[in-house]
Amino acid sequence: MSSSASNISATPAIGGISYLFPASTRSVRQLSQDSQLESSVETLESFGFENVHVGVEESPYQLARDAVAKLIDEQSIDPESVGLLIYGGTPGVMAFSPAGDAAIGAAGFCTTDRFKYPSARLQYELGLTKAWTFAIDQMACTTLLAATRIARSLCLTEGIERAICVSSEFFPMYAGREAIFNCTSDAACAVLIERDGPANRLVSATTVTKGYYWDTDSRRDEVVASYFPTARHVALQTIDNAGWKACEVDWIMPHNVSMRSWEILSGLIRLPNAKLWTDNIARHGHTLAGDNFINYRDALDAGAIEKGQKILLFSYGFGAHWTGVAVEA
């Protein structure tokens, strides 16, 4: 396990969040009719899912670019002030292909096309000319949390004043849309990290990786069984690293997995369900790109989060990674 707590005078903070979904939306029932789900409609609806977003014409890259552009615009920042750009999500040339043509993108891996990186293209097209740019991979649904954690650390250790983390994850248009009882959505989400911000401060982060569960298919039972005790461990460790008590947490910004699993997990960490921000599970489903931050932005916009409140962001990614981030609003 690795964890970190802020012990340097500056406290990196979330300076802004912007996200975008593809234009097309499909209901759980439609997905089921097209054999894109494993579980029954009734089961998934009882777990809180109603609709997901499905990329058709859009490419993961386009959506990532538009999300970052939106972030720069909304926060009125000079692109040249950005010292770090971390991209996570659909890798390589696959990111440039519309979701309906993912096979074409995959073929590009066999040529020099594989070196056409979305992160570098983002840096160029958005004018982030001073941003140290790279991508992170293989973190599944914890990618954006991991990126913000890296950005937070680099802001502190490298003196970077401003960083942007962006994740854009699509499934091929006709691929299965269920990941162990969760309906997945395509989306892109961009997060601005400031080296020292007055609000939404990144107080602590904890990640546990358990490589034994790398093969989700063959160890499915063990993955399901291990999820809860490890999730509880990471959530409580994150809270503890922040110097908080569990009962002091005001909100949990979840990854949008089934409501049922969150009811169980909140029972295990002894927090009432009322502290879960669950409005987006039904309307957006579970994005690999950045549920926690999408929810955080929506909660801010809804006026649900007050300054100084203690917020826990938690996500799990196949592979297997459990990540928690504590934010003081």
């Binding site: 358990k210 490589g211 034994y212 291990s226 809860f228 005790p229 490890t230 509880r232 461990h233 049922r260 699993s261 009811e263 169980i264 029972g267 295990l268």
Partner: peptide, 20 residues
């Protein structure tokens, strides 16, 4: 393997997990 220690919890939470 990193098997996590089983959590001691209340019967309601356990029952909800088992039912799920």
């Amino acid at each position: 393997k990193g098997v996590e220690r089983a959590i001691l919890t209340d019967l309601d939470t356990y029952t909800l997990f088992a039912r799920s």
